[in-house]
Design a binder for these strands. Structure first.
Lengths: 180, 180
DNA sequence: GGTTTCATTTTTGTATGCAAGATGTGACGT
DNA sequence: ACGTCACATCTTGCATACAAAAATGAAACC
């Protein structure tokens, strides 16, 4: 085991929240969490602070932590922000990308084109993540890449919802087409 | 006093670090800080975690916290990132800005044009902050605005250095001119 | 002389105790 | 019945205590 208990807790909690195990707005009682994970309140508190920094939860001084409620407006803002950041990544990547890398990207993009037809949502999602990761790396700017990735993770559950909602893969592919 | 001791500590520490009171790479001993600020280690730890989230310091598990060393490459990345984010803010603002707001912006911009000639660095810096704040607000996207502001704060000391280095105000004004 | 190993010490991470603020409940008054 | 105020309880925030890991230094060995 590498990290501290608090770090692991933060990860576990983040997953639990993103998985919807805690409803938005619900209180995150320190003692309860401590019991649930068989640790004391101290690492729980640290984990909560960590998560608060990512925006996943909200801690009001002396009033406890709650799962962040994302209003439609905020959600919209988050999506817009991610879109803009990804576009920036893509632009930077386009400027400073070696031809071999570009090849790989193109290849992956085309394979995704095929996957989009087969309706294999899982495979498409995986490939999609790879592609975005490549773009983030390609930007050669760890600051922007990190911010974008963080946003992306935070939006993961909502993206999934959109994914299942309609035939998103083809549209997504089309958008990528423009970028590439 | 509204906030908790940990929050205040985080602010104070951030200021101290940005003011250069702690050299980059230097260890931040929890006990020392606790004594220095007359609190126990607990709030110090929480403050350190908070600062780590902003990228100002770095905490290695079980190895203590150090002031983040910004390599030239990272600094470059930070500046690029801020530039891109501000550009995005400006673009969004341009799209959704009322004419009255636009007026105000223009007025402020022109006043800065005059200030740029008078060599009053302080006044120019103040006006500059106001202008950027207006743009952030104008984006109508709190997510991007927050990220940009956070970056801006983190880069404050370096920006100051650049400011004093050469006649930056005129150049800055020229850049703004394009944006406006 | 340099290196490795082991013990000491220092420092971080976690648990627990205690105080202060927040929350909830019920009596009391209008 | 409704609102208010006092009180009891619960939760968070801070301090202290303890455990474990890493840094330090010294002695033994090559």
């Amino acid at each position: 085991m590498s990290g501290t208990a608090a770090d692991k807790l933060a990860q576990d909690l983040a997953e639990a929240i993103l998985a919807g195990e805690f409803a938005p707005g619900s209180r995150l009682d320190e003692q309860l969490l401590a019991q649930r994970y068989s640790v004391s309140r101290t690492p729980v508190r640290e984990a909560l602070r960590q998560l608060a920094a990512t925006g996943l939860i909200e801690v009001r001084p002396r009033r406890g932590a709650i799962v962040a409620e994302v209003t439609p407006k905020q959600l919209e803002d988050l999506f817009v922000a991610m879109g803009e950041l990804e576009a920036t990544c893509a632009r930077l990547a386009a400027l400073s990308m070696s031809t071999t890398k570009r090849r790989k990207l193109q290849a992956l993009h085309e394979r995704m084109g095929e996957l989009a037809k087969t309706d294999d949502a899982m495979a498409f999602a995986d490939a999609n993540d790879s592609l975005h990761e490549m773009i983030y790396e390609g930007s050669h700017n760890s600051v922007i890449a990190d911010m974008t990735l963080q946003l992306r993770r935070r939006l993961a559950p909502f993206r999934r919802a959109q994914f299942h909602l309609e035939g998103r893969p083809p549209r997504s592919h089309a958008e990528h087409d423009v970028v590439v």
